[in-house]
Amino acid sequence: MARAVKTSTRVSYTIAAWVVALLIFFPILYTIITSLKTEGEAIAGFNLIPSFSLESYREVQNQQNYIKPFTNSVVLAVGSTVLGLLIGIPAAWAMAFSPTKRTKDVLMWMLSTKMMPAAAVLVPIYLIFLRLGIMDSRIGMTVLLMLINLPIIVWMLYTYFREIPGEILEAARMDGANLWGEIWHVLTPMAVPGIASTLLLNIILAWNESFWTIRLTTTNAAPLTAFIASFSSPQGLFWAKLSAASVMAIAPILIMGWFSQKQLVRGLTFGAVK
């Protein structure tokens, strides 16, 4: 970028960008601020300076132990993503490096399974879960979330793997590498960034999935989505407490997202950038 930009232009763009960014971020910011207010302050009108009271967090914790839904969220999000990668990596690898005439159709078909409205198959899934005895179990929810996100996993990985030049594999083959050697020594180092961003995006998607997790869990496997949905009932609703519960539900994934956003953004292209 050899182009010199006038400082005044740069400053006005900077101000505009920050105003927009703060507007977009405002609902989250205000929730964090409100969670640190007392209930009295919370309904006393617009005010950006809280008294930094942790009372609401204590009350939320007393009402509903946070550790259990938090653990469930971690187990479901990480478990379903890892399981999805175990199935998705070989499939995407095969599609990218040994494509057949139907590879593109198969990919599109996979994606189309995501178009199936969840509500449409709620009763069948409910009955299957009952029959298999996995209602409100972590294992059932993990498998379910894996199935929901598998098409995205395969597609993202496919677009990544396709960028890896095939000649490198040819060369490895000439050198006598077998298939596993090929994957392990040649492909893995090149594919790690792609796998990492796929992993990140799918942890986020699984963490935030809010249809199945609310409808199919009650206590044992209920993650943070169900935890927060239980605060939506009108009785006993207090602003500061609600904010504290909201912050507790989103903080882990928000912090993970902030720290990994460079990696994630690189992965958010789905092959959109050629």
């Binding site: 900077t14 977009i24 927060i228 949905a229 928000l254």
Partner: peptide, 29 residues
Amino acid sequence: IFGQGLVRILVISPFFVMPPVAALVWKNM
């Protein structure tokens, strides 16, 4: 712009917010 990294973090944040929280925050706050 100055602080592009931070701006990007602020802008991406709503994407990390789970739908029930987004709905509750907008509804009440």
